[in-house]
Design a protein around this nucleic acid. Structure first.
Lengths: 152, 152
DNA sequence: TGACCAACATTGGTGGGACCAACGATAACC
DNA sequence: GGTTATCGTTGGTCCCACCAATGTTGGTCA
């Protein structure tokens, strides 16, 4: 296990990129453990959430909306389809496309994963007060927005 | 590329674990690109930094000090040794151990990577003021400490 | 002293996540 | 109608985190 103990080299201990990595690693462990218990992984959740929010979409659109590579979308959708959580159907108006639809089972599974995830947020940010949590998300959001903009 | 654009599902856009992941992914990209340009990767830096800070160590100690799995330490040290950045010598007082030493080349390389890394910190946190950066590192540190404690 | 257990280095895996290149099929554009 | 772009798909790469097993050596204790 990736230990966050006190014996890390000092130059790393205070580098923001290192701290972020540590927190991210920890949160990733929490999330993937939680998802694994529900038979899912990160890509599955992202795709289901995108389908729920944007409605039936092509695979390419899903890729764009989730930041997942097209090729990885294919694999993850195969896994979701094998569990009847999504359905693939050809788009009659554009024969290159598949239209991906959330099944009722998929919706239920998404709700389940949503619960897992909100539980984890609390776990992760347990030591912070509500206003500190807002501070943290605010700072992170600004960092993200900055880099998103400079890449567009 | 893992896009941080505005079209992510809403439920993800505000989840701290998601934000942390995004920032971590971005920082990881910056770091690994920077390190790759110098012919290194994360594990190499961590090991070199630990050697520099704690002095010659056994591989097991390095693993403990960096949070890297013993088996991954072996592989990374092989790579470092192949570039003459570290040296492996048997510990005369404990024949189970290898004593790993930083070579002069290793020190130089570490200094180089240090520069890369500090440059990246500035890049990563560009949108934040100095006091905001302190806030962020403070919050992250508290999260880390909390979870480190609850695991020991 | 001998049995037993712990620590060490090493091998050889697993899996998730983020990429990239190339292909055939189709659609859109000029 | 020929070029360009998009779509789904295949098949790779790399990094990071982690696990199990093995043979060797050290330490303990009965």
């Amino acid at each position: 296990m990736m230990t966050a103990d006190a014996r890390t080299p000092a130059r790393l201990r205070h580098a923001p990129s290192w701290l972020i990595n540590l927190v991210s690693a920890h949160s990733h462990r929490l999330v993937s453990d939680g998802f694994a218990a529900a038979g899912a992984r990160g890509y599955h959740y992202r795709l289901l959430a995108a389908l729920d929010e944007y409605g039936p979409s092509s695979q390419a659109a899903l890729g764009r909306n989730t930041g997942i590579d097209r090729s990885d979308v294919v694999a993850a959708l195969n896994e979701l389809a094998a569990k009847n959580l999504i359905e693939r159907s050809p788009d009659p108006s554009d024969r290159r496309r598949n239209i991906i639809t959330l099944t009722p089972d998929g919706s239920r599974h998404l709700a389940e994963l949503d619960e897992v995830l909100t539980g984890i947020q609390n776990d992760l940010l347990a030591p912070l007060t509500p206003s500190e949590r807002d501070q943290l998300t605010g700072l992170l959001t600004r960092v993200i927005d900055h880099h998103a903009k400079s890449r567009s």
